[in-house]
């Protein structure tokens, strides 16, 4: 039942990862980046405001900066690295490139995870549903227009491939 503060393991992108010598108060964001080498998730605010650290835990999109890493044992954690291999971007990532939705890119990994989560739960969201789903992700560069265009591109491409 109890876990010692020093060693625990997390299931990240389907693989068990052992975390050693960690301080108990460390956030999942910190452990992913600094201890396990998953640099995809970004940290900008560390208070749940910006969404750049978004990951999936048991299929929920959550801010990894607000999850105590040691409490996330026995959950399924998916980071942006787990959505597609780095050499072949998935359709969401490609659409962000095509539509010019990436400028400095700091918000992008969190947005990719949030868009992935949205489209997994709702394959044809309305414009307002897209805006609501991405309301926890802040982008300082793009003004969001190109991000919404990228989401629309993915939706229409996926609809075409089904019909």
């Amino acid at each position: 039942m109890s876990t010692s503060s020093e060693i625990y393991s997390l299931r990240v992108n389907g693989t068990d990862q052992h975390v050693k010598d960690a301080w108990i108060g460390e956030s999942l964001l910190y452990v992913l980046r600094e201890r396990l080498g998953f640099m995809g998730s970004k940290g900008a605010c560390e208070q749940g405001e910006c969404g750049s650290c978004t990951v999936l835990i048991n299929n929920d999109a959550v801010c990894s900066c607000l999850v105590m890493a040691a409490s996330a044992i026995d959950t399924d954690i998916i980071t942006v690295e787990g959505l597609a291999p780095s050499e072949s971007p998935n359709d969401i990532q490609q659409a962000f490139v095509t539509e010019g939705a990436v400028q400095c890119g700091f918000c992008t990994p969190g947005l990719i995870v949030a868009v992935h989560h949205l489209l997994e739960t709702n394959s044809s969201p309305t414009e307002i549903e897209v805006k609501e789903a991405l309301s926890g992700n802040i982008c300082r560069c793009t003004g969001y227009g190109r991000i919404f265009s990228a989401v629309q591109l993915v939706i229409s491409q996926r609809e075409k491939s089904i019909s």
Binding site: G51, D60, A61, C63, L66, E132, S135, G136
Partner: peptide
């Protein structure tokens, strides 16, 4: 409350 991420947690 907050954002979708906060409401999921």
């Amino acid at each position: 409350v907050g954002s979708p991420q906060i409401r999921a947690t």
